Simulated assay, not measured.
Amino acid sequence: MPATEPLFAEDSYLRDCTARVIAVEEKGVLLDRTVMYARSGGQPGDAGTLRWQGGEATVAEAIKGEEGAILHGLAPGSAAPPVGAEVQVAIDWARRHRHMRMHTTMHLLCSVLPGIYATGNQIGMDKSRLDFDLPEPPAKEWFTEKLNALVAADHPVGFTWITEAELDANPTLVRTLSVQPPKGAGRVRLVRIGPEGAPVDLQPCGGTHVRSTGEIGRVEVTKLESKGRQNRRIHFILPE
């Protein structure tokens, strides 16, 4: 299965693009390039539309195929475009941007718990959660205060690419035990929050993020939950 060029990996703010239909699979439409993020790492895949001459289809969610392919899973009742057709790909921007704000908040949560590994996560539109190997967590009010201070500081969010060998030589960059960095392409993207010389957070991640922490808006940690002897689940929302 041919790989799909992931345009979102270089620019999370692209809302649409033109692409060519490579194949139509049972699980979705394979394109040569896309702005749609495929579900992975706890972040849902993008939804949106495909439009072509004489037709339109609703994408329920983009998912991963084999060897770098991205499949655009169609909603029930949507007819697939013909193979070879040029299509206009457009994402549901409100949904995507919400996920970007949530995902960037998760990186900030990691930053306030230095040296503590994340053990699981789930990003949603209304609420999200991040699990940590943390026997005695601070109170939820402590997390809320710390996160909103980082949001108010309006730290820039950027990325750089390193080789897989460089990542292997610096294993402390990986902050998660449950989700491993996307590898296999020879390089890995590092997402950085804060200045290059003194980042607030720096870790490998293939997801989509906002350009600065101020774009997140107010964060509220709503609940801390025990999920085992040392595993603690931190629930948060973006009330605004």
Rank of each mutant, 00 (worst) to 15 (best):
Q180T: 14
T34Y: 07
Q180N: 09
P6L: 14
R51L: 05
M125N: 00
V59E: 06
V89L: 11
A69C: 06
A85V: 03
H209V: 08
L14A: 14
V59T: 06
A165V: 09
P82C: 09
R15K: 15
K127N: 06
P44K: 01
P195E: 13
H103D: 04
A19K: 13
P156G: 08
L31S: 08
E225Q: 08
T160F: 10
F8I: 03
I162T: 09
R192I: 14
R229Y: 10
M1R: 12
G77E: 05
P156C: 09
V200N: 01
G197I: 04
K140M: 09
L30D: 01
Q230L: 10
G55Q: 14
A3H: 14
E164C: 03
C205P: 02
P199Y: 06
G68P: 03
I116L: 00
G84A: 06
Q88E: 10
P156V: 06
A152E: 15
L113G: 01
S226V: 12
V221Y: 03
T208W: 08
T104L: 03
P135V: 11
P239E: 05
A23D: 15
E225T: 13
C205I: 05
T104I: 02
G65Q: 10
V210D: 09
I234A: 11
V221S: 04
G228P: 08
E25H: 15
A75N: 03
H72N: 07
S212T: 13
P114L: 00
I234L: 15
M100R: 04
A60D: 13
G186T: 10
D168K: 15
W161M: 11
P195N: 11
N170Q: 15
L190K: 00
V219S: 01
R95K: 12
Q230R: 15
I91V: 12
G54K: 03
R192H: 04
R51S: 08
G214Q: 10
A3D: 12
G158V: 06
V210F: 03
T172H: 14
I22H: 13
H99L: 11
M1I: 14
D32F: 13
M100V: 09
K223E: 13
I193G: 00
S178K: 14
P135M: 09
P135A: 14
A69E: 03
Q180M: 14
L238P: 12
R39Y: 05
Q180R: 10
G84M: 03
E164N: 05
R129E: 08
R98P: 05
A118F: 00
S12M: 08
V221W: 01
L50T: 02
V200S: 00
E61L: 13
L147P: 00
A60F: 02
C205G: 00
E66N: 14
P114G: 00
P138C: 09
K64Y: 03
W93E: 04
G197H: 02
F159G: 14
Q53L: 13
H209M: 12
A149G: 08
Q53I: 08
L167N: 11
L30N: 07
C17R: 13
E225G: 07
G228L: 10
L190Y: 08
C110S: 01
H209Q: 04
D131W: 02
D32W: 15
T4H: 11
V89I: 07
T18Q: 14
T163R: 09
L173N: 00
K127G: 06
A139T: 13
W161L: 09
Q53M: 07
G54R: 02
I22K: 11
V35N: 07
A75P: 05
Q43T: 06
T144M: 06
L224N: 12
D16I: 09
A69V: 07
F8M: 10
D133G: 00
